[in-house]
Structures are given as C-alpha cells and as structure tokens.
Design a protein around this nucleic acid. Structure first.
Length: 258
DNA sequence: ATGTCACCTGGTAGGTGA
C-alpha cells in the first residue's frame, strides 16, 4: 500500500534557506510541502530551482514579511490564496487540491502580545479561518490544514508552562480558537501517536534555546475526520535546526495511507 | 540576560518583527 507524505516548514526567509530546503527535500522526498515566511515578492520566488528538484509550486508572497508556498510532486488544482471572504493585506494562506487531498498551508499571525492590535488581528484571523474551513470541509472532506499556527495548544507543548502562562502563543483565547478549529472535525496528527516528551517545533534563536531544548510546539498538521484513521505517522524533524544558519522552526511531517 | 536573526531604510547604524 502506497502512502502520501506531507510536510510543513516555516523557513524564515526562503532566500536564505533555499539550499537547506533543497537538501531536505532530497533526503525527504515528500509528496507535498507547505512553506511559511518565504519573505519574497512573487517575482523573486525561486521557481526554477524548485522545479529542478522535481516540484511544482504555487506561491503567494509580499515584501519583507509573511509569504507562503505549496510545493507538490503533481500539480495542485483549485488553488486558493488567503482566507476567502476575509480581506487581508498579509500573504498567509495558500491551498490546493493535491492527489485528491485538500491541502491548506497557513502562517497564522504571531499576535505580538495580548492586548495589542496585532493580538486582536490574530483572533479575528483565526475566526475567519474557522468560518472558511467549515465551507472547505463541506466540499473537500479529505482536508489537511498545516503550517505555523503560532499557538501552543496545551501546556505539554511548552518547555516552561509557568513562565509562558498567559504569554503570546499560550493564552486561553488562542487555545480556545485552536480548539474551535478542532471542533470543525479536525485532529492534531502529532497527538494521534505516542511522542517523545518535550517535543517542540520552534526554538528561539536567543538564549541558546535549541541547545537547552527550550521550545514550543506551534507548527501543526490537522487532518479531517475522513483522514484520521489513515494517518500512520507524524513526526518533527529536528535535524535542520542543527544546520549552520538554521530556521528557528523544524519541519513537521505526516504520513497518510491510501 | 531583551543573550538572535532577517529585512528594511538610508546608510556605514537603527528600527521592526518574530
């Protein structure tokens, strides 16, 4: 039985990280990967290098910040950019249908700190995402939502829950909005399996956080009800975080049986 | 330890965002 492998990776500048991405794809020839924080305008997207690596690409970027992409072995169809029905200046979502799966890649707003305008934008954005995904699920029951959610869903996703209590990524409001996504009929693929304790997907560049394994699990892969029973594995690949000049995020991979 | 990294503007540093 063949399986499909999908991945998500916040690369924190595709211009800087392109060689690492190509190395990673050579070692992990996934069927599709979504990228966040490409930080490239669309005219600068490295399509030729990615095509050379054997991937079709759809991309949606802007200057300096944000920017997302969907790379796949077979072309994505019915491609969508950003949340339908939500006016957004920022390039944060790209989705498409890949081999019968609806694949949505998302870069959730950081939110800066509770009480700020950016925090309110984050919550509004998450509400709009939920409302739009409800419609997407109705037409595409086999759906995967993955990306940098900028939310640590539970205390076990936080290296120091006491220090992070009420802080950005860990507030009750963000966690409630995350649960609202699950309530659509989505499942955190990572938690469908036994996992090593203290598993994170992001480590701050500061404070020697990676060496001390002080991180958060904020990059997620959610699978729909229709896919749940077919998921055979979900892992975080810490290896690229050990690279010279790494992204601060690690890729997350899911395997889905046919 | 607000200890790093990436990107911008407008310079040979400072501001913003993460």
């Amino acid at each position: 039985m063949r399986s499909v492998k999908l991945a998500t990776w916040n690369v924190n500048s595709l211009a800087v990280r392109l060689p690492q991405l190509l190395d990673w794809l050579a070692a992990h020839p996934v069927d599709a990967i979504v990228l966040q924080e490409t930080k490239l305008t669309d005219d600068k997207f490295p399509q030729a290098e990615i095509a050379e690596a054997g991937y079709q690409a759809q991309w949606f970027g802007q200057k300096t910040y944000n920017g997302v992409a969907l790379l796949s072995r077979v072309p994505a169809t019915d491609v969508v950019r950003n949340i339908v029905g939500f006016a957004d200046e920022q390039a944060r979502v790209i989705g498409g249908t890949v081999g019968g799966l609806r694949v949505i890649g998302a870069y959730f707003p950081n939110g800066q700190a509770p009480g700020t305008d950016k925090f309110e934008y984050k919550l509004s954005w998450m509400r709009a995402l939920r409302d739009w995904l409800r419609e997407e699920l109705a037409t595409h029951p086999q759906l995967v939502l993955m990306g940098d959610f900028n939310v640590a869903p539970e205390d076990r996703d936080v290296h120091d829950p006491l220090a992070w209590a009420g802080q950005i990524h860990c507030t009750d409001e963000e966690r409630e909005h995350f649960r609202q996504l699950l309530a659509l009929g989505l499942h955190d693929a990572f938690r469908l399996f036994e996992q090593p304790p203290r598993s994170w997907s992001w480590w701050d560049y500061r404070n020697l956080a990676f060496r001390k394994n002080q991180g958060l699990r904020i990059d997620h892969i959610l699978v729909s009800d229709a896919l749940k029973s077919r998921v055979t594995a979900c892992t975080i690949d810490k290896a690229p975080r050990k690279n010279e000049r790494p992204s601060d995020h690690a890729p997350v991979i899911v395997e889905i049986a046919d």
